[in-house]
Amino acid sequence: MTKSILLCGVGGQGTVKASRIIALSGMEAGLYARTAETIGMAQRGGSVVSHVRISDSPIASPMIPKHTADVLIAFEPGEAVRCIDYLKDDGVVIVNNKAVKPVTASLSGSDYDGSDAIKYLQDNFSHVSLIDGDLICEKCGSDKVLNIALLAGAAASGELGITVEGLKCAIRKQLPEKTHEMNFKAVDYVNGLLKQEA
């Protein structure tokens, strides 16, 4: 069994942290884990992508071949579309519905707001979960819970290779204590929402 998870977003949104959480949880569970991340120049407000692979046998490539990812966790709708080629045919998409408008778009007066991207995902893929990141951050009282909220969505899909409980365990182990409560809140909240939808 190999699970390939692609995370994408805009520099500064917490994609690297999220990918490390998945990988470390995998390792805790005694599995092999590999990640590949964008760091450096591109980090500053640019598009960022992290590849995470977890498996019970050694993993050759840290990069996920296109059309094979089990899950796409997108911190931004436009970025989801940019990376959708990585997803396998019946893969799961977890996407934050809030668009991040780049300075270039503001300068050129473009009206990019992510709605086209979301429509495209919903029209062409069968397993798309929209996460209202802003709302969850507001409910949990911090902008820092976005990555955990998205991970919670992915865990709930059953395709992450980590259960919701496993995710909580990872939060306890890997994140500073003072953030535990708000992150748990985010996990529970997302779970509640997804159950309602189902």
């Binding site: 805009v10 520099g11 407000g45 640019g46 598009s47 408008k101 780049p102 270039t104 990019y112």
Partner: peptide, 11 residues
């Protein structure tokens, strides 16, 4: 795909 915005790194 619909057009995705270009995102050069910025300060």
């Amino acid at each position: 795909k619909p057009k995705t915005p270009v995102r050069p790194p910025v300060l």
